[in-house]
Design a protein around this nucleic acid. Structure first.
Lengths: 153, 153
DNA sequence: GGTTATTCGGACATTAAGATCCGATTAACC
DNA sequence: GGTTAATCGGATCTTAATGTCCGAATAACC
């Protein structure tokens, strides 16, 4: 469900959260610490900087910093930039139902899409760092979980 | 999370469930009805036949049939064949923790893997065909859902 | 102002998944 | 037994994601 790229983004942000002295971190050191491909991580970081999630400074002592309070971030905030799952033209069951009056299976897929986004949006980034930090842990019906795992698009 | 191939497998089995007269269905007709690439679907069906989920008969009036009662099948039964997500050598947070004494983040990932499999295993295939057919719909903690979406391996 | 450490971003390479092609085999039907 | 309709499975092509390389820009420090 998460692309490798999205996973790198998540790792990078979590890394910066754990660093949390004010220093910028160079892409190369971050990559070495995380054990991920340095040049590719650089690209991912660059993209995150352009999207406003990180700030970057060039030159000596440069690198990347979090642009905002990580306590405010959701998983979706981090990962959304890298996950394009928009179109839903085709019906899972193969009926040629058109977008204006979709069949029931079709409608469910659209729902799933929303469910997934919703869940990622409502999950605080920091909750991934430990079981202690999960505020308001809502229960989700079992079958919806499966639905959210099914690739949309 | 589901590969496209896994999705094809799911579509194919659901298609056969909905057919449900005793006739075998040719890969080509199934592909046409579902709107998926015929030659590729043929390969997927072939693999399912070899794994024992479908039976295949060659020649005229040949094609594919379900090998067993679909009511007994879980989503995992259908999809598991196509989803290899085994190794977990590396720790998400980059600490070089070894497999014998993994760090807490590492341990969580192992959990996630199990959670995902468990969920797919406990979801009846037929529950995907409509909201009516979901027996014993257990509730799952929200954060576990997110964990299960994070790509394992 | 020169040197050094870094990001920036475009061009290119690699890889795995997805998809296609086709000849060989097999079963039904005449 | 020949024809037809299907699976079988190996070889190959395509595409998108991932990953590498490198020159240019830029900021800190001497």
């Amino acid at each position: 469900m998460l692309s490798r790229t999205g996973l790198y983004a998540l790792q990078a942000v979590l890394y910066l959260v754990r660093q949390s002295n004010g220093d910028a971190v160079a892409a190369a050191t971050m990559a070495a610490d995380l054990g991920v491909p340095p040049n590719y991580l650089a690209k991912v970081l660059n993209r995150m900087a352009r999207s406003g999630m990180l700030t970057s400074t060039r030159g000596a002592h440069g690198g990347f910093r979090l642009a905002s309070d990580p306590g405010e971030l959701s998983v979706e905030d981090v990962v959304g930039e890298f996950e394009e799952l928009l179109p839903l033209e085709k019906c899972l069951l193969g009926g040629g139902c058109d977008p204006t009056s979709p069949c029931s299976a079709h409608r469910r897929r659209v729902e799933w899409h929303g469910v997934r986004r919703d869940i990622l949006r409502h999950t605080p980034l920091l909750s991934l760092l430990g079981p202690q930090a999960v505020p308001e842990d809502r229960e989700v019906p079992h079958h919806r979980l499966v639905e959210s795992m099914i690739k949309v698009s």
